[in-house]
């Protein structure tokens, strides 16, 4: 995915922030352990959130201090491997590979070269992940194919296109059994819907320049790559409605050790991202590593 789903860091308690970072590092180590260096390169925040959601309340969480290539001197606190991390790592690999595959077919120039390189590098790890999670792999490839058909057909409904991506993400709840499955599926559906539409909105100008299909432009008739106020309000309303439904679903999930962090993401992080995207203040570089709290304070000028 795209790294849109992050906590609102200044609102996170320090202890939760540290645990979130340990989970982030844990996912990175898990990707490295199972899929090697190429696996580590695809690490992103959306799947840290997924790992937190998939974490069964009863499964304990061990922490260890570990070094890695990015932090060679100072050891970092890292979550030890767990079923949730393993699943999240496998899913993120499958999605990254399938997206690279799409990129090879769709894009041109340097991007295509990049996608091709990613496809080669992720080929072997992907086969391993697909063998472990064949259902998810099938869902991803089916949904992305249907999505591409809709996009190539110039679909004018953002709901119809977003639905494919949302269902793709919702299928990540497939391995969960019991009471948690339905709320999780609904929550992931709306997170996927938000990510798809927010990404389309953020890419309006770029897609316009390249002459590529953009679902928001197709739905609201944005001609010059700059949405008018009416479009902005409509997108904001539909995304916020989704985030409220995501929150309603989240409340029906069983408690786990990651509940406070997920609560922050659902109630604060996602709405904040939606506001920033629709304001045009969301910057691509925000998608990188999380700023430490004190840096955030400085940047906000507080």
């Amino acid at each position: 995915m795209f790294g849109y789903v992050t906590p609102d860091l200044p609102e996170l308690k320090l202890k939760e922030y540290q645990r979130f970072r340990a989970l982030y590092c844990g996912l990175c180590h898990e990707l490295g352990l199972r899929y090697g260096l190429p696996g580590r390169m695809i690490l992103n925040y959306d799947f840290v959130f997924l790992a937190a959601l998939l974490w069964d309340g009863d499964v304990p969480c061990g922490y260890r201090m570990r070094r890695c290539a990015v932090h060679p001197v100072c050891r970092r606190c890292v979550c030890e491997s767990s079923p949730a991390l393993t699943t999240a790592a496998g899913y993120s690999l499958i999605l990254a590979y399938r997206k690279a595959e799409d990129g090879v077919e769709d894009s041109r120039g340097a991007r295509r070269l990049g996608a091709r390189a990613a496809r080669v590098a992720l080929g072997r790890p992907y086969r391993r992940a697909a063998a472990a999670y064949p259902d998810f792999d099938r869902q991803v490839s089916d949904r992305l194919r249907l999505l591409k058909d809709l996009e190539n057909g110039g679909c004018e409904s953002i709901d119809e296109t977003a639905d494919q991506f949302a269902r793709l993400l919702a299928s990540a709840s497939g391995g969960v059994t019991g009471n948690a499955q339905r709320p999780l599926s609904e929550l992931l559906y709306h997170v996927g819907r938000i990510v798809y539409i927010a990404d389309a909105y953020a890419d309006l100008a770029e897609d316009r320049k390249k002459g590529e299909y953009n679902p928001v432009a197709a739905r609201f008739g944005v001609a010059d790559g700059k949405p008018d106020e009416e479009t902005r309000q409509a997108v904001l309303a539909t995304l916020m409605s989704s985030s409220r439904l995501a929150a309603a679903a989240f409340e029906l999930m069983p408690e786990s050790r990651w509940t406070p962090i997920c609560e922050n993401i659902v109630y604060l992080g996602i709405p904040k991202m939606i506001r920033e995207v629709t304001d045009g203040t969301y910057r691509a570089k925000n998608r990188g590593l999380p700023k430490e709290p004190e840096k955030n304070i400085r940047r906000n000028g507080e």
């Binding site: 309303a237 916020m240 409605s241 985030s243 409220r244 609560e263 659902v266 109630y267 604060l268 709405p271």
Partner: peptide
Amino acid sequence: TVSQTNSPYRQTGYG
């Protein structure tokens, strides 16, 4: 309901 632009309302703040 679908036109509101406010964020989801959280009852519990810091516990």
